[in-house]
Computed example of a mutant assay.
Amino acid sequence: MRADAARRREALILAARDVLAERGHDAPLDAIAERAGVGIATLYRNFPTRDDLAHAVARRTLDEAGAAADRALAAMTSDPERAWAEFVDTAVRLRLGALIPALIVESYRELPDDVLEIREGTKARVTELVHAAQQAGLVRDDVQPIEVIMAVARLTRPHVRFVDDVVPALVPRMIAIYLAGLRPDGRPLPQ
């Protein structure tokens, strides 16, 4: 693939992630093309169906989450609090809570085998990271890795727009409260 074609494809995946997170699975494809700065024909050349595009977003997002877990695991020995906080920040930035329902209309069984395989690999790395965070005293021992991810996903779901007017930076505040609650001693994470 030529470099310019690869850049357009990448722009489409990133734009789709944003638009799907904001507007759900039924978001207009022309809104995605517009956000990526390309025409609708370019979108269809790269992704003939809506599911093709959604699966590309899933692959990319799962890969990024897995890479974030790997970076955090590598940094756990030197600065566990920072490593853990950076992983959670990445999970929030990826907007997992908004993307999960946008990518999965009915169930995980709808995903292609390669996406399920990436998901399993990412899940294993995140599980290892949560266990490392538990050993570092950042997460209570009775918390299961899936509970951590599902809570972050829930807290990052789209909120009613007026909430930001009432409670600025609601998601970061809720994440900070949640992470403090995960700690065995209840200490807040350093800012």
Rank of each mutant, 00 (worst) to 15 (best):
A54L: 13
A153C: 10
L14I: 06
S78Q: 15
A102L: 14
R17D: 06
T156L: 06
T42V: 09
R154T: 09
I32P: 02
L179C: 07
D142T: 08
G181T: 09
A102I: 08
N46F: 00
T49H: 11
A6S: 14
Y108P: 12
P158R: 13
D142M: 11
A83Y: 00
D185K: 10
A75T: 03
D141I: 01
L179A: 01
L53E: 04
R2L: 15
E128L: 10
P168W: 01
A69G: 05
R7Q: 12
N46K: 07
E64F: 03
V148H: 08
P188R: 04
E128P: 04
E120G: 15
L103W: 00
R140V: 07
I175Q: 07
Y44M: 03
A16F: 01
R119Q: 13
D79E: 11
W84V: 03
A16D: 05
I13S: 02
V143Y: 04
R125G: 02
Q144I: 10
L20R: 04
T42Y: 01
V167P: 05
V171I: 14
A68C: 11
F87K: 00
V126H: 02
A102D: 06
G39M: 10
D63W: 07
R109F: 05
A36M: 02
H55M: 12
D30A: 13
Y44R: 08
L170Y: 10
Y108I: 15
A72W: 00
A15T: 00
S107L: 13
P168T: 03
L129E: 01
S78A: 15
G37V: 03
D185L: 11
A15M: 07
I146A: 15
V92C: 06
A11L: 06
L12I: 02
L29I: 07
P168A: 08
L111R: 04
V167F: 07
H131F: 00
A98S: 15
G66N: 10
A41T: 12
V143H: 05
I40C: 05
G37W: 05
L73K: 05
T90A: 10
V171G: 06
L189N: 08
Q134R: 09
A98V: 11
E34I: 03
R95W: 09
P168K: 05
R35G: 10
L94F: 02
A69N: 04
A6W: 01
T90I: 05
A83P: 05
L155P: 07
V139F: 04
A83D: 04
S107H: 12
D4E: 15
R154L: 13
L116Y: 02
D165A: 06
